[in-house]
Amino acid sequence: MDSGKLSIIDGSVKITPVNGTVWLTKHEIADLFGCFVSKVGSNISVILKAGLLDESEVCRRKYYENGSFIEFYNLGMITAVAFRIRSHNADLFRRWLMKQAVQKQSDKWVSVFVPWSDKIFLN
């Protein structure tokens, strides 16, 4: 699975999407935001249980020959998780998202949809 790249280096967000998105595992999201994998996993569970995002749209599984699999989450889920986690890198990512939402590129405005609900709280 070609998943694209998303990193935060020296306070700068670098994104290389593939087919318009990026797919990361829970471990990669935890590394990106500088938090524990369990925090990412619990926030993903809350987001899905609340019906804020559709699992069939934001989650993909890669199956191995032995029957095990690994789950990947797209930019929509990564964004939702970023708004639930308190960390320096999550804050940098949120600021980058907001900057992208209002940034004017040449004569076109860039639209960025950030899924949000009153059910989402930082933890």
Rank of each mutant, 00 (worst) to 15 (best):
T79E: 06
T79P: 05
T79S: 11
T79A: 05
T79G: 04
T79Q: 06
T79W: 04
A80I: 02
A80K: 01
V81T: 11
V81Y: 01
V81R: 02
V81C: 09
V81I: 15
V81W: 01
A82S: 15
A82N: 06
A82R: 03
F83S: 02
F83P: 04
F83N: 04
R84A: 11
R84H: 09
R84S: 10
R84C: 12
R84W: 12
I85C: 07
I85H: 01
I85G: 03
I85P: 00
I85F: 04
R86K: 14
R86A: 08
R86I: 07
S87V: 02
S87H: 03
H88G: 00
H88F: 08
H88M: 07
H88A: 04
H88Y: 07
H88P: 00
N89H: 11
N89T: 00
N89E: 07
N89V: 02
N89I: 00
A90F: 01
A90V: 03
A90Q: 00
D91S: 12
D91Q: 13
L92D: 03
L92Q: 11
L92E: 08
F93M: 04
F93V: 06
F93I: 02
F93D: 01
F93G: 00
F93T: 02
R94C: 14
R94D: 05
R95L: 10
R95A: 12
R95E: 15
R95F: 09
W96Q: 05
W96I: 03
W96K: 03
W96H: 14
L97A: 14
L97N: 12
M98E: 07
M98S: 11
M98W: 11
M98P: 02
K99A: 08
K99N: 05
Q100A: 13
Q100E: 15
Q100S: 08
Q100M: 12
Q100I: 07
A101Q: 14
A101Y: 05
V102W: 07
V102C: 07
V102Y: 13
V102F: 13
V102G: 10
V102E: 04
Q103G: 01
Q103V: 03
Q103R: 10
K104A: 00
K104S: 00
K104V: 01
Q105L: 08
Q105S: 14
Q105V: 15
Q105W: 05
Q105F: 08
S106F: 11
S106C: 09
S106L: 12
S106Y: 11
D107V: 03
D107R: 12
D107E: 11
D107W: 06
K108L: 10
K108F: 09
K108Y: 07
K108I: 05
W109L: 12
W109V: 05
V110M: 13
V110Y: 15
S111Y: 15
S111A: 13
S111M: 14
S111G: 04
S111L: 14
V112Y: 12
V112H: 10
V112A: 10
F113S: 08
F113K: 14
F113H: 12
F113A: 13
F113C: 14
V114S: 13
V114E: 07
V114L: 15
V114Q: 09
P115G: 14
P115D: 09
